[in-house]
C-alpha cells in the first residue's frame, strides 16, 4: 500500500515540484505552440522538397514533439532533486526506488500524450489534414505508447543527469537525434543504412510509423507489430533507467558525491 502511495501521490508531488515548465508562461509557448510551428515548418519544407504529403509531416512531427515534454520533464523530475538539494533527503528514505521513480514518469507520460494530441489536432486543422474519426482512438493509443517509450529513455537520461551538469544539453541533443532519425521528417528509407539501423532501437520510430498506418485507415492488427516493438523498447529503456539510477545512487554514496553539481 505504501508503494502505491509513493507511486501515485509521491510521483505527482515530485512532478509538480520539479517540472518548472508547468507555469503557463512556459507551458503554453514551449509545449503547445512550439510543436505546432514545428509541424508547419517541416510541412512547408516538405512541400518545397517535394518529398511527402502534409499528412506525413503532421503525424510525424506531432508524435515526435512528445519528446520535448518527455525528455525535459523526466530529467527535471529526477535531476531536479540535486539542484533543489533534496536528493539526499529522498535517498535516505526507506521508500522503494521502483515506485518512487516510475511514479514520476506517469504524469510525464500523461502530459506528453495530451501535448502531442493537441499539436496533432491543431497542426492538422491548420494544414487541412483530417484524420478519420474512427482512427483517432487507435492513433491516440499509439501516441501513448510512444510517450511511454520516450519517457523510459528519459528515465535513463535522468540517471545520467545525476552526473552531468548541463542536463538541457543532453535533452536537446536527444531531441535532435530523434528529430533526424525517427522518421518524423525523413522517411527511414531515405536515411543512410546505419542511421536507419539506429532508428530501430530508438523510441518513437515505430510509434510514428504505426500512427501513419492507422491514420491512413489500416486496421490495428497491421500496426500491432510496430506497437509491440515500441512497447518492448519502453520495457527495455525502463529497465536500463532503473538500473542506472541504482548504480548512480550507489556510486554517489560511495564517493560522497550525492549533491555535487
Amino acid at each position: 500500500m505504501r508503494s502505491v502511495r509513493v507511486f501515485f501521490i509521491g510521483g505527482l508531488l515530485a512532478y509538480r515540484a520539479l517540472f518548472s515548465w508547468l507555469s503557463p508562461w512556459i507551458f503554453i509557448p514551449t509545449l503547445l505552440v512550439l510543436p505546432v510551428f514545428q509541424i508547419l515548418l517541416f510541412a512547408f519544407v516538405g512541400r518545397h522538397a517535394g518529398l511527402e504529403s502534409d499528412e506525413f509531416y503532421v503525424i510525424g512531427n506531432a508524435v515526435q514533439s512528445s519528446s520535448t515534454p518527455c525528455l525535459a520533464a523526466m530529467t527535471m523530475a529526477i535531476a531536479g532533486e540535486r539542484y533543489e538539494r533534496t536528493l539526499g533527503v529522498v535517498l535516505v528514505t526507506p521508500a522503494r526506488r521502483v515506485p518512487m521513480f516510475l511514479g514520476r514518469a506517469l504524469p510525464v507520460v500523461a502530459n506528453a500524450w495530451a501535448c502531442s494530441l493537441f499539436s496533432l489536432l491543431v497542426g492538422g486543422t491548420l494544414l487541412g489534414v483530417g484524420i478519420h474519426a474512427g482512427a483517432w482512438l487507435p492513433v491516440s493509443l499509439v501516441v501513448l505508447v510512444g510517450c511511454l517509450s520516450c519517457s523510459a529513455l528519459a528515465l535513463s537520461l535522468g540517471a545520467l543527469a545525476l552526473r552531468l551538469r548541463d542536463t538541457s544539453t543532453l535533452t536537446n541533443i536527444t531531441y535532435g537525434v530523434l528529430l533526424i532519425v525517427s522518421g518524423a521528417n525523413v522517411p527511414l528509407a531515405a536515411l543512410p543504412a546505419w542511421l536507419a539501423a539506429i532508428a530501430e532501437w530508438l523510441p518513437l520510430t515505430h510509434a510514428i510509423a504505426a500512427a501513419r498506418l492507422l491514420a491512413a485507415g489500416a486496421s490495428f492488427d497491421r500496426a500491432a507489430g510496430l506497437v509491440g516493438r515500441e512497447l518492448l523498447l519502453a520495457v527495455g529503456y525502463t529497465t536500463v533507467g532503473l538500473l542506472a539510477l541504482r548504480y548512480q545512487e550507489m556510486q554517489s554514496r560511495r564517493h560522497a558525491t550525492l549533491e555535487v553539481a
Binding site: 516538405g46 518545397h48 518529398l51 544539453t169 536537446n172 541533443i173 535532435g176 528529430l179 525523413v186 531515405a190
Partner: peptide, 30 residues
C-alpha cells in the same frame, strides 16, 4: 560549454534534417 555547443549543434540538427529531405528529390540549385 552549453551555450557554445548548443549554438553550433542546434542549428546543425535542423540543417541536417532539411538537407536529408532536400537531397532525396531536389536538384542542385535547390
Amino acid at each position: 560549454a552549453f551555450g557554445g555547443l548548443m549554438q553550433i549543434v542546434w542549428p546543425l540538427i535542423f540543417a541536417t534534417s532539411a538537407l536529408l529531405m532536400f537531397r532525396v528529390t531536389a536538384d542542385e540549385q535547390v
